[in-house]
Computed example of a mutant assay.
Amino acid sequence: MLHPTTEAPAPDWPAPATTLNAGGRSDWVLVCEHASCHMPADYGRLGLPPGAERDHIGWDIGAADLTRALAARLDAVAVLAGYSRLLIDLNRPLGTPASIPERSEATEVPGNRALPQAERDRRAARMFAPFHAEVAALLDARAAAGRRSRLLTVHSFTPVYLGQGRPWHLGILSGRSRKLAGALLAAVGADAPDLRLALDEPYQVEDDSDYAIPVHGDARNLDALLIEVRNDLIRDPAGVDLWADRLSRALARI
């Protein structure tokens, strides 16, 4: 990984990571890699029409609000990203096609086409490396203090992708923490039996296409889960509150 840049944050260049409730007492450490749709004006919206970055291609709709609400209910620390995943995806290994996507779902991203390596390195140093350095430093500090850490990364997904409907309300993904993923699925299902829940939907965690769970979770031998809530369920405060209540109850039981 590249070293984080030493450039100071500016109004249009906010901090790449924001840590909330650093002294939280919970074992859960919340991470939201797709919390923001912000793109500095320098990038000209990457050639996309106005507002395109606020759709699901630019961030995980509702995930940041859900992360904040979970942090409050669980008394957990949370780390939230400061930039749109269209600039660089914090949950993709550097150098992979999805890291800086030239196409997101059915949308071409002109500003990412034929990108010079120097610009790829700039984004990695200014956005990717500082974010993951903050997560790593947090986990290191907790380990040094003898504190247990259980990683939970918070995501949302679009109900329809490339014309295909996605019927699930919640997906729970994992690498090595398969038993824990099943326990969380059972705990949510016991609280809300009418929901459509699934393991490893609508994606799967894989070392060559995911970053946070393999690197910050499995490589440290931590409990590590990724949750995906369908984004039409958490687009407003009432939906966020409902899911934060539901998930915090389930997380507290496993």
Rank of each mutant, 00 (worst) to 15 (best):
L152S: 08
G58R: 11
Y161L: 15
R126L: 13
A250I: 02
V79E: 10
H34M: 14
L94R: 13
V135D: 06
D12K: 10
S156P: 01
R120F: 11
E201K: 12
N231T: 04
V215S: 14
A145P: 04
G51D: 08
H155E: 15
R176K: 11
N112Q: 03
P4Q: 05
D241E: 04
A224H: 07
P97R: 05
P93C: 06
A118V: 15
R148V: 14
G175S: 06
E201V: 02
D12L: 11
M127E: 09
V77I: 05
G182A: 03
V135G: 09
L251W: 01
V31G: 14
A124W: 04
H34T: 14
V109G: 07
L66P: 00
A98Y: 05
D89E: 09
P202L: 08
Y83P: 03
R235M: 14
A17E: 06
P4G: 00
L242A: 11
P50F: 05
D121I: 05
M39P: 06
H38V: 01
A15I: 01
G44F: 09
P193Q: 14
G82L: 09
H38Y: 04
T96R: 08
R85H: 06
L2N: 10
D194E: 11
L66Q: 12
R178K: 10
Y83H: 08
C37F: 14
P49N: 09
A125K: 08
V205K: 04
G82I: 00
R178S: 12
P16R: 02
A181D: 00
G189S: 01
